[in-house]
Each structure stands twice: as structure tokens, then as C-alpha cells.
């Protein structure tokens, strides 16, 4: 499995609210709400931690789901968020994310 790295886009404003994360794209003011699992992945998107490690450590251990299914869902999620312009996805570690 090739490593996948994810980083929050620096033009995305966001806040955690209870078990959700609200994200606003600064480029077009679009508003997104991430559910509990997506919020976990979002908060771990530091550009340095591989997606597989995020899924293994934060999703599989907390939710009743196998790694393969969780990773497949996570890949789909991060591609969607990248398509919205609020997440960066790369095969290499990413510098220049929001750095939080």
C-alpha cells in the first residue's frame, strides 16, 4: 500500500463543535460539516502522519470497524475533501498545510 499523506488546506477555517467539525472554505465561503469519524481524520491531518496510521490508531481502535473497510472509507473521504479544496492529499509528506 503506497503511503498517503493528508493536510488541512491553509485556506480552510475550522472549529470543533461537540463531536463535529465545521469547515469553511475561505476561497468561496462554502460550509462543510464533518461527522465524528471524519472529524477525527480531519484533526489528525497534519501532513506528516500517513493516512493508514491515522485510521489504525484513531478509527479502528475507537469504532467497531475493520482496518480495510475503515481505510477504504477514509480514502474516499479525503478524496472528496480534496475535491472541495479544503484538504491536500499527497504521496509525500506535506509542508504548508495549516500547521495546527
Amino acid at each position: 500500500m503506497d503511503p498517503v499523506y493528508i493536510a488541512r488546506h491553509p485556506a480552510a477555517a475550522w472549529r470543533r463543535l461537540e463531536d463535529e467539525v465545521i469547515v469553511i472554505s475561505a476561497s468561496d465561503s462554502s460550509l462543510f460539516t464533518l461527522n465524528e469519524v471524519a472529524a477525527e481524520i480531519w484533526e489528525c491531518a497534519d501532513g506528516r502522519t500517513p493516512l493508514a496510521e491515522i485510521v489504525a490508531q484513531h478509527i479502528v481502535t475507537r469504532y467497531d470497524v475493520g482496518f480495510d473497510e475503515a481505510y477504504s472509507d477514509a480514502r474516499e473521504l479525503v478524496e472528496q475533501l480534496a475535491g472541495k479544496g479544503i484538504l491536500i492529499v499527497s504521496g509525500e509528506p506535506i509542508t504548508g498545510g495549516d500547521g495546527r
Binding site: 480552510a12 477555517a13 472549529r15 463543535l17 465545521i22 469553511i24 475561505a26 476561497s27 465561503s29
Partner: peptide, 16 residues
Amino acid sequence: FATEPESVQAVLNAVC
């Protein structure tokens, strides 16, 4: 109206 991330984050923080 703002498109710079700092201003958008400030508005989000303000609403929260």
C-alpha cells in the same frame, strides 16, 4: 466577503 483565511477564521470564531 472576506477571502483571506485569517478573516474567515475570525468570523467562524466570532459566530462560535
